[in-house]
């Protein structure tokens, strides 16, 4: 089946060509050609009907999914988010405390909202253990790393988009400071290394 075939009028003009110039005055050929004139007429009616359908669908409050649809989507998202990585903060005798990378990232992003012209994007956090435990983890809990060991520290890798107008070096410095303060205040540990990558400029 020739799906690429563009329909043509008897005069040889393609519908596509008439469509392309529908908003302009008719060409000398179109002014004389009856087939072109009636095709233009029909396509103009279609254009109007299309615009009117687009507008009314857009504003038609009955053409929206029910709230239960969003709830169902968000419930799945919430249920599946628990797989995010955990970082151990404390390992005392009366029990351990760990924090999800998710929770740390949200503190970091929240801190970034205080800096005008910066939109925080992806955030990845690593733990570099100190020299005293070369084998890394002594806990059998899988992908849990420890931040509270002597010498171990967080390495935060944050990617951001910046407004075109911001002065990047100075803004990145104050962002780094802000994140460092927030990690101390909101989590209770020191922030370690904060790597910031400006990966994009966003339109204002």
């Amino acid at each position: 089946m020739a799906v690429d075939d563009v329909p043509r009028l008897g005069c040889g003009r393609s519908i596509d060509r008439i469509w392309a110039t529908i908003d302009q005055p008719p060409s000398p050929h179109e002014e004389k050609c009856e087939q072109c004139q009636s095709a233009r007429e029909r396509l103009k009616k279609l254009t109007e009907a299309t615009r009117s359908l687009r507008e009314s669908d857009l504003h038609n409050t009955s053409l929206k999914p029910r709230l239960s649809v969003k709830n169902a989507i968000m419930n799945v998202a919430r249920a599946e988010i628990r797989r995010s990585r955990r970082i151990a903060l404390h390992g005392k005798e009366n029990g351990t405390t760990e924090i999800s990378e998710q929770a740390l990232s949200s503190v970091i992003r929240f801190a970034a909202t205080a800096i005008p012209g910066i939109h925080a994007r992806r955030c990845h956090i690593e733990i570099r253990s100190g020299g005293n435990d070369p084998s890394g983890e002594d806990r059998p809990s899988g992908n849990t790393a420890t931040a509270a060991n002597e010498g171990a520290h967080l390495i935060i890798n944050l990617r951001v988009a910046a407004a075109p107008s911001v002065e990047i070096p100075r803004t990145v410095d104050s962002l780094r400071q802000r994140i460092s303060n927030a990690i101390t205040a909101c989590v209770g540990i020191s922030a370690g290394t904060i790597n910031i990558t400006v990966e994009d400029l966003y339109d204002v």
Partner: peptide, 14 residues
């Protein structure tokens, strides 16, 4: 007898 209490902080929000 209270034993270990392990805590996972999964979210920090306003």
């Amino acid at each position: 007898t209270p034993g270990r209490v392990d805590i996972s902080i999964l979210a920090i929000e306003p």
